[in-house]
């Protein structure tokens, strides 16, 4: 069984499906009177967050607590990191405290891969730079499966700031593994042609209106201002007009198609408020599914013999 979860590319189809199956069982816990399982009693999970995050950190925290693990939240702000401590020294400190798993979010791509060498426990990548965010891809594919019955054979359009999006990268990799067809859509500055090499069958498109009639899933991405050091498009208004998902564009979608967004949303930029709140939107489900999927990942990585 796998020990770390660093990249969506590390997951083969049977493992991803196993995580989906376990997540479906974990989801039933949320509907019970006692929302807790004793499974990871006595295990310690450290949330090591070098970047701001509400949803992912809280999601991992709830997931670990529902499995009865002890959770330590360590955020770079207000910690020894601000006094100049390196990732390696922080890792050794956590190791000395007996962390069974470290959930890490870091602005540098590849930081979780380095961390693996410095701690004995499992490492879960909760987002590293513009690289990967594998649990997001697992929860997104889980959401597709629960809404549309299957992932294999789906046409998935991922629209927006693909260049800076670890969500897009992890999703494109996992969707390929699970047999879905991915089209990356956005302005050429944010979806450079090099993305055609991400997986053997990924496609790149620049016209959202041409892609929508074929799409079973539209995944809208946030434009990541904080990672941009140049002008990637002329104006927000123009971006929204050419790539934003509004009610008129939603009407071009097949009736069964769903609208996804990993959050946080910029309402009125990449997605219109009435679209985000429509029955097609899975945005709230994605948050709930995130807890179930992360419970499944923690169980798979920590549940067995260490």
């Amino acid at each position: 069984m796998i020990k770390h979860l660093l990249s969506a590319a590390d997951l083969d189809a049977p493992t991803a499906t196993l995580i989906h199956d376990i997540a479906a069982e974990m989801a039933t816990v949320a509907g019970r009177e006692v929302k807790k399982l004793p499974t990871l009693r006595g295990r310690t999970v450290v949330n090591l967050f070098y970047e701001d995050s509400t949803r992912t950190r809280t999601s991992f925290e709830v997931a670990a607590k529902r499995l009865s693990a002890d959770v330590v939240n360590f955020s770079a702000k207000g910690s020894s990191v601000e006094k100049g401590e390196s990732l390696k020294d922080t890792a050794w400190t956590l190791q000395a405290m007996g962390a069974d798993a470290v959930v890490i979010r870091h602005p540098a791509s590849g930081a979780p891969n380095r961390l693996v060498n410095w701690v004995h426990g499992s490492v879960l990548n909760a987002g590293d730079g513009t690289h990967e965010h594998p649990t997001q891809a697992l929860l997104d594919t889980y959401t597709m499966r629960s809404r549309l019955g299957t992932v294999a054979g789906l046409n998935v359009a991922i629209v927006g700031d693909v260049l800076h999006s670890r969500v897009a990268r992890s999703n494109a990799l996992l969707l390929h593994t699970l047999g879905a067809k991915v089209t990356l859509v956005g302005p050429p500055t944010l979806v450079p042609p090099v993305f055609e090499t991400l997986t053997p069958d990924v496609r790149v498109g620049y016209d959202i209106d041409a892609v929508l009639p074929e799409a079973d899933v539209v995944m809208m991405l946030r434009v990541q201002k904080e990672r941009m050091n140049a002008a990637f498009f002329p104006s927000w208004h123009e971006y929204s007009r050419r790539y934003g998902l509004d009610a008129a564009r939603v009407r071009r979608l097949p009736d069964h198609a769903i609208v996804m967004h990993p959050g946080p949303m910029n309402r009125g930029v990449e997605i219109a408020p009435d679209v985000a709140d429509s029955p097609r939107s899975t945005i709230v489900e994605q948050v709930a599914n995130g807890v179930s999927v992360r419970m499944a990942c923690l169980y798979l990585l920590l549940g067995g013999r260490s």
Binding site: L18, D21, I22, E25, T39, G303, G304, R305, S306
Partner: peptide, 11 residues
């Protein structure tokens, strides 16, 4: 649980 490799979860 921690004496065996991870088990699949049933329904």
């Amino acid at each position: 649980l921690n004496r065996h490799s991870t088990r699949a979860v049933g329904h």
